[in-house]
Simulated assay, not measured.
Amino acid sequence: MNRLRLLSSIAALALCGSALAQQPAPQPAPAAQPAMEQLTPEQRAALAKQDADMGQAALQVMQLVDGNRIGEVWDGASAAMKQMVNRDEFIKQVTIDRNRLGAVASRAAPEVSRSLFRAGQQVPEGLYINVRSATRFANSAEPVRELVSFRLDEDRVWRVSGYSLR
């Protein structure tokens, strides 16, 4: 199976009940994201499905944050994220940010991107999927970029690796 085919077979994060649960990704990650024009129609369709699945997973993470269930996000997060920030600090910072902005008024459709980080960069090495949404909050005149990042962990499972507002 070639590297392009591998990208199309990465599984999406699944959320189970009120806590985060994951499904393993069946294939190893490629070294880089191929250009869309190099993909077959089947591979493009698989990427579109993955984008939709990851967008839905990110929305569920955002809704956990909306419901002040921030600890559940951290509980199901990647070990890489847990090494960078402890549970209490994550909950504290997200709570401060969200309280400052107020209630969610609306969210735009999610935008999905992929990144590959190598050793020595600011974040742990690995393949990431980032889901952004322009979100309007009660206390902000302009939309805020709400970002949920997922990391493909060593056990081939996508897990939350970050949540931020800018």
Rank of each mutant, 00 (worst) to 15 (best):
R145N: 05
A138H: 12
V104K: 10
L147S: 08
E111N: 13
G102M: 05
S164I: 05
V160F: 13
R118Q: 11
E142Q: 09
L116H: 14
L152Y: 14
V123F: 14
F137E: 01
R98L: 00
D97Q: 08
R107E: 03
R156L: 14
G120N: 03
G126L: 03
R159F: 11
W158A: 06
S164T: 11
D153P: 05
N139A: 08
F117Q: 11
S115G: 08
N99W: 10
S115M: 14
V160G: 09
R151V: 07
A141Q: 12
S149A: 10
V123A: 09
A105I: 06
D155C: 09
R159Q: 12
D155S: 08
S161F: 13
R114H: 14
A109G: 09
F137D: 01
E111D: 12
R145K: 08
R132M: 13
R98S: 00
A109N: 11
P143I: 01
W158I: 01
V94E: 12
A119I: 02
G162D: 03
A105P: 00
L116I: 14
L127G: 03
R136G: 03
G162H: 04
S133Q: 11
V157D: 09
S164W: 15
G120H: 06
D153C: 04
D97I: 00
V123C: 06
E154G: 09
E146H: 01
E146T: 02
T95M: 13
S164R: 15
S106L: 10
R156S: 13
A141N: 09
K92Y: 15
S113R: 15
V157C: 14
V148F: 05
Q121W: 07
A119L: 06
I91S: 11
R98Q: 00
P110R: 03
E142I: 02
V112A: 07
A141F: 09
T95W: 15
K92C: 08
V104M: 06
R100L: 06
P143C: 02
G162N: 05
R145S: 04
S140P: 05
